[in-house]
Amino acid sequence: MSAQAPRYPLPPFTAQTAAQKVQAAEDAWNTRDPEKVSMAYTIDTEWRNRSEFVNGRQEVQQFLQHKWEKELDYKLKKELWSFTDNRIAVRFEYEWHDAAGQWYRSYGNEMWEFDADGYMQRRYASINDASIAETDRRL
């Protein structure tokens, strides 16, 4: 259990509450605010993002700060894939460009595990990037 106020909706998830968690995550990540995003995670959260391992809310903030310095004009869309008890699986894609103006669409899957207070304690993400033309953007 976290020492903070509950972060609704809480597990065990239903189709409706799992979809709400996914939408809340999409909305938060699209702010590109590392501090705001990090508040959805436990203090000791554990991440695997591609080949990087991130531990704790402080490292999450640093990771996201660096991410959004590189991935400019980031726009994300998440989709609920599956859920059970305190776990949710998500499919996502996001678009961004680098400092040289090259656009990318990044595709991936995430597995999330929540504590009883609704904070994400584990996030495992597999992600692949594809170069796209700016005219091929969808998001």
Rank of each mutant, 00 (worst) to 15 (best):
T42Q: 02
R138K: 12
E134C: 08
P12N: 14
F83P: 00
Y119Q: 06
N128T: 00
P9Y: 11
M120G: 00
A133M: 07
Y124H: 13
A25M: 14
E69D: 07
W29R: 00
Q102H: 04
D117R: 13
A5V: 08
E35A: 03
Q58K: 10
Y124E: 03
A40N: 02
G108D: 01
S2A: 13
K70F: 08
R7F: 12
T17D: 05
S106E: 02
S2N: 04
A5Y: 10
T84R: 07
A15K: 15
E52K: 11
K77S: 15
Q65P: 03
T135H: 08
S106Y: 01
R48D: 06
F92Y: 06
T45P: 05
A40C: 11
W103N: 04
Q4S: 15
F92E: 04
P12A: 12
T31P: 02
E52N: 06
W112P: 02
T31R: 07
D85P: 07
D33P: 00
E69G: 00
R87T: 14
T42W: 06
A24F: 14
R87E: 13
L139G: 09
A19P: 03
D115F: 04
P34R: 10
E110Q: 08
E134W: 10
A116M: 12
E59I: 13
G56D: 10
S126I: 08
A19C: 09
F63L: 13
R138D: 06
E52T: 09
Y8P: 12
Y107H: 01
V54K: 02
A40K: 03
R122E: 03
S2Y: 12
E59S: 07
I43Q: 11
R32Q: 09
Y104P: 04
T17C: 04
K78I: 14
A5N: 10
L64G: 04
A130L: 03
V37E: 09
R7H: 12
E71K: 09
I132F: 09
P12D: 15
S2Q: 10
S82N: 12
N49Q: 13
